[in-house]
Design a protein around this nucleic acid. Structure first.
Lengths: 130, 130
DNA sequence: GTGTTATTGAATTTGAATTATCATTAGTGT
DNA sequence: ACACTAATGATAATTCAAATTCAATAACAC
């Protein structure tokens, strides 16, 4: 992919930004496509990938790596938090705060730089529709 | 992939089991290949995949989903623990215990079933060789 | 409005991880 | 040892996310 930031304000890029703001949870490229198509009928998935890459580069989005699934993206600049994934519909949601009370004990010679925490379960929508 | 458990005791399967026992950390299929080849010179990567699938099915191995990387596998039946991934060499290591003190607070209507915790940093080998 | 050129859409291609194919090899019960 | 057939090895095929291609379109500076 070209690594340059896309500078023009296109309807598509605006629709993609709106999709992330409206969802208020980490979205996969496919989910971002569905969200963006609410504003622009025929956005291409390629445009989604291009603009996500651009928005990540300009630090408007950050990447959320999900174990065993494709990456999600969320609006950048939020406070330290972690994520919840519904084991039924695979949507990812934001969790407030952090349950880590103490620095994890690492083996001798290991250095800590960061941590990620994932909670699994059923989201409200899936619980209601079952 | 065929879903049947492989029941015969082949040199290759034994070598694969030995690789996991010796490593004592979650291995990727590629890592398992390298480990198994210490006992059997020309194991095929296809055999690694077949036997890992079989060993997972017979619950001798469990899958470790790693954010942003391919799955690792570890010997099953261990106590609750989490994992460390070296950001330099990408190896995954086992961490003793669990730093989660309190159940995470979930949004209204969400149900908890499990959690995963990943610590990132530099492993001892990489710290020494830098 | 016009011209320039970045961006898009649609389809194709890539790359990697994993799975399938099939002839050959080797476990296993007898 | 023999027969049966599961497992292997080597490679091809598949999958799927992500990147690329290129002609058509549309931002934006003037």
């Amino acid at each position: 992919m070209s690594t340059a930031i896309q500078t023009r304000n296109t309807r598509q890029k605006e629709a993609i930004r709106a999709a992330f703001l409206e969802a208020d949870r980490p979205l996969s490229p496919e989910e971002a496509l569905i969200g963006a198509q609410k504003q622009v009928q025929a956005v291409s998935i390629a445009t989604i990938y291009r603009n996500i890459a651009s928005l990540v580069e300009e630090q408007w989005l950050t990447t959320v790596d999900v174990p065993g699934h494709s990456s999600r993206y969320e609006v950048a600049g939020k406070a330290h938090h972690h994520h919840f994934q519904c084991t039924s519909c695979n949507t990812v949601h934001e969790l407030a705060g952090c349950v880590m009370q103490t620095r994890p004990k690492l083996p001798r010679g290991f250095t800590y730089t960061a941590h990620e925490f994932f909670v699994y379960g059923t989201c409200a929508d899936c619980k209601n529709n079952s």
